[in-house]
Amino acid sequence: MKTLDHKKPSKTQELTYELKVEQVMRKNVTTLKPDSTMKDVRRILRNNKISGIPVVADDRLVGIVTIEDFIICLLEGGEIDGKVENRMTKNVVTVYSDEPIVQVVGKFEKSGYGRFPVVDRDNKKLVGIITKGDIIEGLLKKLEIDYQKEEIHTYRASHIFEDVISDNSTLILKYRIKGGEFKKAGEQTSKLRKSLLRLGFLPETIRRVAIATFEAEMNIVIFTPEGELVAKIQPDKIMVNAIDSGPGIPDVKKAMRQGYSTAPDWVRELGFGAGMGLPNIKNYSDEMTLESKVNEGTNLNFVIYTKKK
């Protein structure tokens, strides 16, 4: 924390004092027992896409086992059926659910750990887990609520990355989209756009992300039953993934061509579907990939690099 001791804290810094761990932590924690096996570890790491699992006995936290522990186990030729208690870290650094975020940020800085189990101060039971990403997301949500009352420029949330987290943490924002809901088509992009404004990205960067994302949202609304937009935000780049549940694009190459469209007439009369959507996404992004399987769905990824201020 380079800047926390400044005389005049920014709004983001103020929030790190106001917000408590329990407001931003993840509550549904997957846990293991001391006699679970390393095989269980592998399964959970893989299925849940997480990097550390708390080990619990009688509701008490007794250790944590991480992806590193698993790799070391493999490297040493350890038993995959061996018990977790022999591989886990036993002296776990924990945080209390009623601690302010600012203290946790400090602990992240000092320890170099990627996550902390959260325990209740009174009964010492495990109640959650917290990562740097959870903190940024929590701060952003809080700013969003307060934002209703004030203008963006009075806010200075723009230095959220520099203020709170100094490494390359990724902020992940997800938006669900229902197919066919034309009235609302564009709303989710609007939310992402607001978050990017609050994070202080340059207007030209935000414009590119917003236009490409809007087209992706329109495609989901026009052509599919439902889908999701996932934006991964880092200080130097913004990655957007648009996934849907079908019907898929039979000929991706053709679909990328300007003016090629399979949209029905009624869509054209709504001002879309004239075959410019995907070419627009390609033009406004720095990198783009499109994978599609008929009857399964489409997976669109694009990246926009942010310009230095």
Binding site: G259, S261, R268, A274
Partner: peptide
Amino acid sequence: GDLLSDALANSKKGNIWITLQIHQN
């Protein structure tokens, strides 16, 4: 204009039509 329904309703005989649409309609 680019909306076919509007063009059908509002264009007049002998007009030259300026549009972005390339569809056969």
